[in-house]
Design a protein around this nucleic acid. Structure first.
Lengths: 290, 290
DNA sequence: TTGAAAGCGGTACCAC
DNA sequence: GTGGTACCGCTTTCAA
C-alpha cells in the first residue's frame, strides 16, 4: 500500500476487465438524448446500472438507422455487457448478428422490427383509449386525433386506442377526424382533440390560442410539460414515467445477463391521466353564469 | 475476409485499445441527466465526441460530491481520454490527483473549487444584468430577485448582475428585494421579478396566477420552457444554449488532448433575452384603451 | 507479403 | 502466503 501511493499507482480497469472477460459497462442508444423523455429514461437505466456497479455509454441515433447501427457496433465491439436501444424506424435486422454474437439487448419505447428482442413499452394504446374515453365522458362525440405518420408504431397504437374508445362508446368515426392536423383544426367540426405527442400538443395549443378557441375546444395531450398546470386552461395529459421504463429495461437486461432464458418478453409501462382543465371542457358550452 | 465472416469474428475493441494505449472514450458527469439543460449539454458533448470517433460515458452526481468522486474515479480507472464535469458544490480537491495522473478535465456551468481547470460557463451575471436592465427600461424601479442560496456560485453571479444593472441605472436596492421568495411576493412592494432558475420561475408564476397578479407584475426568468410562448402573458426569459456549452467544452477538451498547454481557460457562453410579454409589463399599469 | 514473438496491464492458477 | 508463468485479444516490430 505504501508503495502504491509512493508510485501513484492506479490500477488500469480496462486491462483488468479485458482479463476477466467482462466490461462492467452498458450501452444506451436513444434517438435524442436532449429530449426530456429520453434523458429521463437514460437516468432510469443509469440508476440500475450503478446498483450493479456498471458504467453507462450513451449515444443518440437521431432516428437514423445507419447511425444507430454504427453506434451499436461500436458498443458491441467494446463488448458491453448489455445494450438498451430505442430502435429507429426501419428495421433492426443488423441487431440479429449482435445478439447472436452474445450481446444481451433490450429495446425500449418502440418494438424492434425484423427481430425478436425483449421490449419495454409505454402503453400508448391504453393511454389514447383512456384519454378519448375521458373526453367522451365530458360529452364529446366528434373527437379529433392529431398524431404523426400512422405508418409508425406509436401513432398506430394511439389510433387503435382511439378507435377502441370510440367503438366502446358506440360512436362513429369520421376519417377526417383521425387525420387531423393543427392547421386544419379551425375548419374541423371536432369539439375535442387528443394529441399524440408533446410536439403536436404544442402546435395545437398555439393554433387554439391564435384563434381564440382555447376555452372552447377540449384538449388532452400525450406527454407532460413543465408548466402544464400553469396554462390557462391547465393542460390535461396522459403521461408515462420514462425513468420507470429505463429502470424496467435495465432490470430486465440484468435478469437476462444473469441467465434468465425465458422467451422474449414485451412489457408495457402504464400511463396515467392528469386532469387539469383543458380535457374537462364540456362538449356543449354552457352559458356562463357570470 | 471470408474466414472472418465464416467464423463470425469480431475484433475486440477493448483489447485493441488496451494495446494502443487510448480508450477513445470520454466521460461526462452532470448533476442530473434527466434535467433538460444537462441532457442538452450532454448531447452537445456527444456530437463533438462522435466527430472525433469517441464514445461517451455519462453519469449523474445528484449534486453529491461523494458520488461525483466515485464516478470520476471509475472513469479515470478506465483511462478515459477526457473528462467533462459539472462540479458538485463542495470542492474538487480530489480531482487534482486525477488531473495529475493524466486525465484531461474540463468543467462546465460551475467553476471547480480548490483546483484550477478549464471551465465553460453560461454568462449568468450578464444574463441577470440584461434582464434587470430590460425591466428598468420598462419603467420598473422596485425589482425583486428570486434566486437560490446566495452562497452558491450561480446565485452569486445573478446577484452581481442584478446589482450592476441597478447601479448603472442609479437605483437603490432594498435587501428585502434581493432575498425575495415566491411566498413573500404578495406582500412585497416590487413591481417586477427576475427569477434565477426554471424552478423559481415556475413557483413565482404559480403564486402570481393564484393571486391574480399575472398581468400586473413583470417577470423575467432565467432558463426557457417548452411552452413559454403559449403562456398568458408569454414568458420573457434570458437563456443560454446548453448544447453550445457542451460543444465548447468538448472542443476545448480535444484541444488539450491534442497538446494545447496554455494556462487554464475560463470562457462564458453568452445569454440572450427573449421578450414574450411577461417582462414587458410596464411598471405603472396604463388604463386600458378598451 | 507472411509469420513469429514480445508486450499492453492486468488476473488466475500453479507449485513451492 | 509468495513467486512464477500463462493468458485475455489485440498491435507492433522484426526476421524470414
Amino acid at each position: 500500500m505504501d508503495a502504491i501511493d509512493d508510485l501513484g499507482f492506479r490500477r488500469n480497469e480496462s486491462a483488468r476487465l479485458l482479463r476477466t472477460g467482462r466490461t462492467s459497462a452498458l450501452g444506451f442508444i436513444g434517438d435524442d438524448l436532449a429530449e426530456p423523455d429520453t434523458a429521463a429514461l437514460c437516468r432510469g437505466i443509469e440508476e440500475v446500472a450503478r446498483e450493479h456497479g456498471m458504467l453507462l455509454f450513451t449515444g443518440s441515433n437521431d432516428s437514423n438507422l445507419d447511425r444507430e447501427q454504427r453506434l451499436a457496433e461500436s458498443l458491441t465491439a467494446r463488448r458491453v455487457d448489455g445494450l438498451i436501444i430505442k430502435p429507429a424506424p426501419g428495421g433492426q435486422a443488423y441487431l440479429a448478428a449482435e445478439i447472436e454474437a452474445g450481446t444481451t439487448t433490450v429495446c425500449v419505447l418502440r418494438p424492434p422490427a425484423g427481430i425478436e428482442a425483449d421490449t419495454v413499452l409505454a402503453d400508448e394504446r391504453g393511454g389514447a383509449q383512456v384519454a378519448v374515453a375521458h373526453l367522451i365522458a365530458h360529452g364529446h362525440r366528434r373527437i379529433g386525433l392529431v398524431i404523426g405518420d400512422p405508418g409508425q408504431y406509436g401513432p398506430r397504437q394511439l389510433l387503435q386506442g382511439y378507435n377502441q374508445a370510440m367503438a366502446e362508446a358506440g360512436l362513429m368515426v369520421d376519417d377526417a377526424w383521425t387525420t387531423l392536423t393543427p392547421e386544419r383544426l379551425a375548419d374541423s367540426p371536432v369539439t375535442a382533440v387528443f394529441c399524440g405527442s408533446r410536439e403536436h400538443t404544442g402546435r395545437v395549443l398555439r393554433v387554439l390560442a391564435a384563434t381564440g378557441q382555447s376555452e372552447r375546444i377540449a384538449v388532452v395531450g400525450f406527454g407532460d410539460f413543465g408548466l402544464a398546470d400553469y396554462l390557462r386552461p391547465g393542460l390535461t395529459v396522459v403521461s408515462y414515467n420514462p425513468a420507470e421504463v429505463g429502470r424496467m429495461a435495465a432490470e430486465l437486461l440484468f435478469r437476462r445477463i444473469d441467465g434468465d432464458d425465458a422467451p422474449p418478453a414485451r412489457v408495457a409501462v402504464p400511463v396515467r391521466l392528469v386532469a387539469r382543465g383543458s380535457g374537462e371542457i364540456p362538449a356543449t358550452p354552457r352559458v356562463s353564469a357570470l
